[in-house]
Computed example of a mutant assay.
Amino acid sequence: MARLTRAQQQGRTRAAVLDAARREFAERGYAEAKIDRIADRAELTRGAVYSNFTGKRALYLAVLGDLADRARTAAEPPAVPPGSTGPALGAFARVWLERLPLGADTPGSGRLQLRSLTGVLETEPSRAALAEILRFEAVLLALALEHHAPDGARRVRLAELTLTLLHGAAALAENAPGVGDPFDLARAAEHLASLPLADDAAFPHLPFVAPARSARDPWSPPSAVRDELTGRQVALAEDGVVVALGVRRLSAAEEAVRSAAPGDAVTVVVVTDGPDEAGQLARLRVIDLVASLRRVFPPGELPALRVVFDEGDEGAGGGDGGTVSAALGHPVPDDLTETAVRVRDGLVVARAEGRGAGYAVAATELRGAGGARAGSGSGSGATEE
C-alpha cells in the first residue's frame, strides 16, 4: 500500500475529528461537549485535535459548515421554477424550514440540524460580524428573487424580513421542538411578497465616493478558486471586477453588483487574516443559504456574482491574508477591508480602496487598452474615509 502524503494524512485526521465532533455535539450539545471526548472518539490525541482546530468553538462551526456543505452538494436543481416573487419566497421558505427539528430529536442533534449558534458567539466582534453576514444573506436572496419581480425593483428589505421570519421560527423550534407548522410559515413567507416594502432606489453615500484610480498593473491571481454559489472552480484572470471585503463589510457587495456593466464578471472575495471565527461564520452562513437557493432557483437565476473565500494561514507569517489578497496588493486584510480592482486583458486597469471601493471600480468606464475613469454614477471626487 502506498504511503499517504502529508496532505492526505492531514485530510484524514481532519475528517476523523469532524466526524467525532459531530457525534459528540449531537449527543451532548455544544455546552457539554469536551475536546478530550472528541479526541477519544476519533482515536487521536488531544494535540491532534488542536493541530486542526483552535478550540471547541472553531470545531463546532466547522461541523456546522460541513453539514451545510453536504446539503449544498446534495441539492438538485428545481424541476419547475417559481413563477413570481410570492411563489419563489414560499418555495424558498419550505426548503429552508426542512431543518426544523422534530419532537423526537435529541436537543443536540436538533441544534446541529438547525445550524444553531445559541451560546456559541461570545464576543461583540463575532456578533457584529454575524449581523453583517445576515445582511449579505439578504442581498443574495434578493438578487435571486428579483428574477421574478415584474418591476425590477430591489427586494432586499423583503429578503431581510423573510429571513427574520425563518430564523425566528428556528429559534422557537430550538426551545420547543414541534412548535410552528412549516407549511403555515411557508405560506406566510409567500404572502410577504404582497407587502408594500419599498427599498431605497440608491445608496446615499455613493455620490461622495472618490472615483477609481487608473492603473496598468500586472494581475497575477491564483489560477483557479472555488465559487461558493456554484461549487465550481472559476478563473479570476478574466475581465471583470474583483471586490475584496472583510466580513464586516460584506453587504457592500450589492453596490458593486448593481453598478457593474451588463456581462461584467463580479467576484466578491471574502478576506480574513486567518481561519478565524468571523471567516468560519461567513462560510457557514453563505454555504447554508446557497444550499436552499439551489433547490429553488435554476442556475440562471442564482445571484449574478461569484463568492470566493480567501482565508489567511495563521501558521505562515502570523496571520497574513490569502493568495487573492496578496494579488490585490492588500496582504494583511481585516474585518473592515474594502478594496477593488477592474481587470482587463490580464491587467489591473482601475483600483479603489475604502468605503464604496466596489462601486467606484464597477462603475468605471474603460477607455482604450488600460485607461479608466469614473462613470457617471461616481461622485465629484470627494475623498472617502
Rank of each mutant, 00 (worst) to 15 (best):
Phe309Ile: 10
Phe136His: 14
Ser109Gly: 09
Gly322Phe: 08
Gly65Ile: 03
Leu140Ser: 01
Thr13Glu: 15
Arg285Cys: 03
Gln233Val: 05
Val307Gly: 00
Pro298Tyr: 07
Glu228Cys: 10
Pro218Asp: 15
Asp36Gln: 13
Pro333Phe: 04
Asn175Glu: 15
Ile133Val: 11
Thr383Ile: 13
Ala327Gln: 04
Leu67Val: 09
Asp334His: 10
Ala244Cys: 08
Glu124Cys: 02
Gln113Glu: 13
Gln8His: 09
Ala382Phe: 07
Gly322Leu: 01
Val349Ile: 15
Ala235Ile: 07
His191Tyr: 09
Val95Tyr: 11
Val286Lys: 03
Thr106Ile: 01
Glu277Thr: 15
Leu59Gly: 00
Leu67Ile: 10
Val243Thr: 08
Arg99Ser: 13
Leu4Lys: 14
Gly315Cys: 03
Ala363His: 14
Ser220Thr: 13
Asp36Glu: 15
Leu134Val: 10
Pro298Ser: 02
Arg226Gly: 06
Thr272Gly: 14
Glu98Phe: 03
Arg22Val: 00
Gly319Asp: 02
Ser259Glu: 03
Ser378Asp: 11
Ala244Leu: 11
Gln10Ile: 06
Asp264Gly: 06
Ala88Arg: 04
Ala256Ile: 00
Ile287Leu: 14
Glu124Lys: 08
Ala188Phe: 12
Leu236Lys: 00
Val361Ala: 13
Val269Phe: 12
Leu145Gln: 07
Ala189Gln: 11
Ala68Gly: 10
Arg99Phe: 04
Ala169Asn: 01
Phe203Ser: 14
Glu27Trp: 05
Ala215Glu: 14
Ala352Asp: 12
Leu112Ser: 07
Arg283His: 15
Leu197Ser: 02
Asn52Asp: 10
Glu314Gln: 09
Ala68Val: 08
Leu64Asn: 02
Ser109Asn: 08
Ala169Glu: 04
Arg306Lys: 13
Ala128Asp: 15
